[in-house]
Amino acid sequence: MVSALDPEIAGQLAEDLPPAVFRRIIATFETDLGRLTAELQACAVTANADGYQRAAHSLAGAAAAVGAIRLASEARLAMDPLQPEAPATLLPRLSAESRLAIAELHSLAQA
């Protein structure tokens, strides 16, 4: 199975930063994910396209920053106003990618 993380980015971060700092970043990322996923869902329900795209943009940025490349790609799809996929299709996939990325980051932190 292809990793949820880009090993160069996530691995470099783990290498550049003290373990405690790296763990703190994962915690911040988790909080970000929770907040932004909730925002995406709320915007999808209320058909707030602008808010949906803003939340997706932030999620893409956060994911890319820790090397969660597959999650970042899904978020970029949500950012794209021309993308044909409905939130109902995309959001579950995005949540699944989030869980995978978090799990792999925790593994990396323990390595």
């Binding site: 971060l13 703190r24 970043i25 990322f29 970000d32 932030s58 940025g61 820790v66």
Partner: peptide
């Protein structure tokens, strides 16, 4: 403005 990016 992105907390994760800012933290890193």
């Amino acid at each position: 403005d992105t907390p994760t990016q800012a933290e890193i």
